[in-house]
Design a protein around this nucleic acid. Structure first.
Length: 597
RNA sequence: GGUUGAGUAGCUCAGCUGGAUAGAGCAACAGCCUUCUAAGCUGUGGGUCUUGGGUUCGAAUCCCAACUCAAUCACCA
């Protein structure tokens, strides 16, 4: 049982015995004692004053004496104002560490076959351009969230809905046909997604030129945009695509495959994956049927022009279009269709959409509509909404080429890691392959941690030159600590020391060691809380605090140099378990930790 | 205007279920490597927690109002 629970129960008993009342729920839960006071856990006694009819100090004193007499885990106490600071017996902490040491997967729960099935949708790219920094945030959040949910004993299906059809891809296709001269990724020596992205930008360039010329002839901006021959051609191509024109379809298929090959490489480097990929071209017609079904049931209504709408004024929202007057689908209809397919494929209990905050309204509406249409998870669907990533000079605009490309970014991070490592002489004695692997792990670790440590709701500014540091509250700092512990463990092994062969049960931990053990013991509840509130940043900050604390310990205490073999073994055990929790915690963020760096 | 989210040190952020003197990192300055990895550790300076009310023994935290910023409120996706 957790120490907090033991103390809470004992405190409730104390209040009952001393004052004859039941303590209100939650009031007996202790909190961590602040660093500047003596003790490990603190009980705030203000809530009990009404029952005790005594001053805070006297009440705390009484409860403290009761606990000392009746609860063996309590070794001592002190009172400051209304705060009862409890010192937990060192032997208890020692036992706690042994318990942590025995659990290979400490803090991680395995899913049972009947555990809730949660589907997490993330990434969801368009196929007309490569992934950029905004996608990186999305992918990292989605992957980490999935890992955290798994660690809480859920079954998780990671899914990606690829937006592979529409006017945007037609633009790229058209530009490729007009100016591509039959080029392929192989011939260009370029990743397919980048090649297609180039044609998208090229289309926009020519299109803007056309609009400008038409405006010069006296058209308004709106008229010019409609009259642009290029845009008309792109629209015609989309109509052909929808009609199943073989030629258009074959170009479309070829170019999308180029893009997928590029995406796959980016995903692999980023370390994210999916259990099931949906393609919009295969789902976009699905929603219509469901909407018509809703029309029959009176959930939707039809206007005179034939368009179909949902009236959401009862929910405080507006009317929402679901089918155009020509009978075609809009975005919302497609999402309803995708939901239908997903539910057919998996009996999901919960659906989580990792999508930027610009779609808050969309998901609010989707939730209501799915609920009305009878999806059991519709009402409680989670829109995991995250803020924009902006650059120092403002927003990223793909058409203007002011985006930070995901592949370039990873290259840069890894290159910086390589340089920094070389400067510090960290890679001396490594093979070229080892050095490259370490640079990769460290560079990506810096990037991932930088993004995941902040609250997803917040917009974040990303300065490519300054943002990513390797010192302080960073991924490499945490990785470094792990590597350092591994180094100690290696040296221990070389010296023939195995802490498990030593009897460490009677070693009394010092205050600093207790503090570390207490921190380690928190890991399971942090994982649980991160799963409850969907927060990778909680894990990131927890690991940082743990590492900070360990480095102080490492600095002040001898481990292998300790003469007493039992104490030495105890400290090795403590170190090994800190490394273990660092590794699991970072794993929940999708960040690898190297054994040396 | 409606809705949602954010506002804490020069900068980037923790602090969410109300508790003790509001914490980290970066940047600046000053120290610590013949000894387990100095990507580390220690110290100094830096705050009207946007503002005003309210609830409470106690508010950065909860409630109300205002202000600022962002997103959104399309027969785009």
């Amino acid at each position: 049982m957790k120490i907090e629970q033991i103390i809470s129960d004992a405190a409730a008993k104390a209040v009952k015995a001393l004052y004859g009342v039941d303590a209100a729920p939650g009031t007996t839960t202790p909190q961590k004692t602040k660093k500047e006071f003596e003790g490990n856990l603190t009980l705030v006694v203000f809530p009990f004053l009404k029952a005790s009819h005594k001053a805070p100090e006297a009440t705390a004193q009484e409860i403290g004496e009761y606990l000392l007499a009746h609860e063996p885990a309590v070794a001592a106490f002190n009172v400051i104002k209304g705060f009862l600071n409890l010192v937990i017996a060192p032997a208890f902490w020692s036992e706690m560490l042994h318990h942590i040491d025995e659990e290979e997967q400490f803090g991680i729960r395995q899913a049972t076959p009947d555990a809730p099935l949660i589907m997490v949708e993330y990434s969801s790219p368009n196929t007309n351009k490569p992934l950029h920094l905004g996608h990186v945030r999305n992918n990292l959040l989605g992957y980490s969230l999935s890992e955290i949910l798994k660690a809480n004993g859920n079954r998780v299906v990671k899914t990606n809905i690829v937006n592979d059809r529409g006017i945007h891809i037609c633009k790229s296709m058209l530009a490729w046909q007009k100016w591509g001269d039959g080029i392929t990724p192989e011939k260009a020596g370029k990743k397919g997604d980048h090649l297609i992205g180039d044609f998208y930008v090229l289309f926009d360039k020519h299109y803007k030129q056309e609009v400008k010329e038409l405006e010069a002839q006296g058209m308004t901006a709106e008229e010019a945009e409609a009259a642009s021959p290029l845009m008309q051609e792109a629209r015609a191509m989309l109509r052909k695509w929808e009609a199943g024109d073989p030629e258009v379809r074959s170009v479309w298929e070829m170019m999308n495959n180029w893009v997928y090959a590029g995406f796959d490489e980016t995903y692999r480097r980023l370390g994210v994956d999916f259990d099931k990929i949906y393609y919009e071209s295969q789902t976009y017609l699905e929603g219509k049927e469901k909407v018509l079904e809703g029309l029959e049931k009176g959930i939707m209504y039809r206007k005179e022009d034939g368009s179909v709408w949902a009236d959401l004024t009862g929910e405080g929202l507006d009317h929402k279009l679901l089918l155009r007057s020509d009978g075609t689908s809009v975005y919302m209809t497609q999402d309803i269709g995708t939901a239908k397919l997903r539910f057919k494929d998996y009996p999901i209990d919960k659906m989580i959409y990792v999508v930027g905050n610009e779609q808050n309204y969309h998901f609010q509406v989707l939730s209501i509509l799915l609920d009305k249409l009878g999806f059991k998870w519709g009402k409680d669907l989670v829109h995991f909404s995250y803020g924009m990533v902006e650059l120092p000079e403002g927003k990223m605009k793909s058409r203007e080429g002011t985006v930070v490309d995901a592949d370039d970014l990873m290259d840069e991070m890894i290159a910086t890691a390589r340089e920094t490592s070389a400067e510090l002489g960290k890679l001396d004695g490594c093979t070229a392959e080892e050095a490259e692997e370490i640079s990769r792990i460290v560079g990506l670790g810096a990037l991932k941690y930088f993004i995941l440590k902040v609250d997803p709701r917040k917009n974040m500014t990303f300065n490519p030159k300054e943002s990513i540091d390797f010192n302080g509250n960073t991924g490499p700092f945490i990785q470094y600590t792990h590597a350092r512990i591994c180094s100690v463990m290696r040296k221990a092994a070389e010296a023939g020391i195995d802490y498990r062969h030593e009897d460490t049960s009677l070693v009394a931990p010092t205050e600093k060691e207790i503090s570390l053990i207490q921190h380690l013991a928190d890991f399971p509840s942090v994982v649980a809380e991160a799963g409850r509130i969907y927060s990778p940043s909680l894990i990131a900050n927890y690991v940082y605090d743990l590492v900070k604390e360990y480095n102080q310990f490492y600095h002040d205490y001898a481990i292998l140099r300790e003469a007493n073999s039992q104490v030495r073994a105890f400290r090795l055990m403590l170190s090994a378990n800190v490394a273990k929790v660092i590794k699991s915690g970072m794993g929940l963020l999708g960040i690898e930790v190297p054994d040396r760096m």
